[in-house]
Computed example of a mutant assay.
Amino acid sequence: MNLFFASDLHGSLPATERVIAEFEKSGIETLVLVGDVLNHGPRNPVPEGYNPPAVAELLNQYADRIIAVRGNCDSEVDQMLLSFPMMTDYVWVLLPTGQRLFVTHGHLYNSAKRPPLKQGDVIVHGHTHIPVAELDGEQFIFNPGSVTFPRNGHAASYGLLENNIIKVVSFEGDTLVETSLS
C-alpha cells in the first residue's frame, strides 16, 4: 500500500496546486490530508495565494481518493466547502503488514501524547510543520512537514509511504528524512 501525505495547506492555492501536481506525478491512489486544510489560523500570516474556496474546489476533484483529518484551524464551515469528510480528529489505516497508522493532526495527539499503540505502529501527524520519519521507542513518528509554512529552516514538503518506507520529500525532490517500517 502506497500513500501520499500532505499537511498544513492553510488555504494556499499555489501550495495545494504543487501538492496535487506531485500527487498526480507519484501515481499513488490515496492522498492523506493531515489537517489545517483551508484556514490559515490566527498564529500564521495570510499565505501566498490564500484562496480557501479555490483550494476546496481543487481538492473536491479528488474527493474519492482523499482521507482527511481535522486540524486545529479547520472548522465546520470549512467542511461545508469540501466534498470529502474531514471533521474527525483521527483515522486508523491498516497496512498489509498488520501495522497501523494513527493519522491525526497533532494538536490533540502527537509524538509526545500518543494514544495506545502497538509496537511497530505509526503515529502520523502534522501541526508542528517539521518533517519527521523515525522510530521513537516502540512506534514510528511520521510528520510530512508543511506545504505552506515550513519551520526550522526546512523546505516545503510532503510525505510518502512506498514499499514500507516512510519519507518526507521537498518540492525540489530532495528526501529530507526517511525510515523503513520493517
Rank of each mutant, 00 (worst) to 15 (best):
M1S: 11
N2W: 01
N2L: 00
F4Y: 12
A6G: 10
A6W: 00
D8C: 09
D8H: 04
G11H: 04
S12Q: 01
L13W: 03
P14I: 01
A15N: 09
T16M: 01
T16Y: 03
T16W: 03
I20K: 12
I20G: 13
A21C: 06
A21H: 08
E22P: 07
E22H: 05
E24V: 01
E24H: 01
L31M: 08
L33P: 05
D36G: 14
L38Y: 01
L38H: 11
R43P: 05
R43M: 14
R43S: 09
N44H: 12
P47Q: 13
E48T: 12
E48V: 02
G49N: 08
Y50P: 12
Y50R: 06
P52H: 10
P52G: 13
P53F: 01
A54K: 15
A54R: 12
L59G: 08
N60T: 07
N60P: 08
Y62P: 06
R65Q: 12
I67C: 08
A68C: 02
A68S: 14
R70E: 13
G71R: 05
C73E: 03
C73G: 14
D74H: 10
D74T: 07
S75C: 08
L82V: 10
L82K: 10
S83F: 01
F84W: 11
P85T: 03
M86S: 15
M86Y: 06
M87A: 07
M87N: 15
M87T: 06
M87R: 12
D89A: 04
W92N: 14
V93Q: 05
G98P: 06
V103F: 05
V103I: 10
T104W: 01
H105C: 04
H105F: 01
H105Q: 09
H107S: 12
H107R: 13
L108N: 14
N110P: 10
K113N: 13
P115Y: 00
K118N: 08
K118R: 14
V122M: 07
I123C: 07
I130C: 09
P131A: 01
P131D: 10
D136K: 06
I141E: 14
I141H: 15
F142L: 12
P144H: 13
P144M: 02
G145A: 06
V147G: 11
R151L: 03
R151W: 05
N152S: 13
H154N: 15
H154C: 09
A155R: 15
S157F: 00
G159Q: 02
G159V: 02
L161W: 02
I165Q: 15
I166D: 08
I166Y: 07
V169G: 12
F171N: 15
D174L: 08
E178L: 03
T179N: 04
S180T: 08
S180M: 02
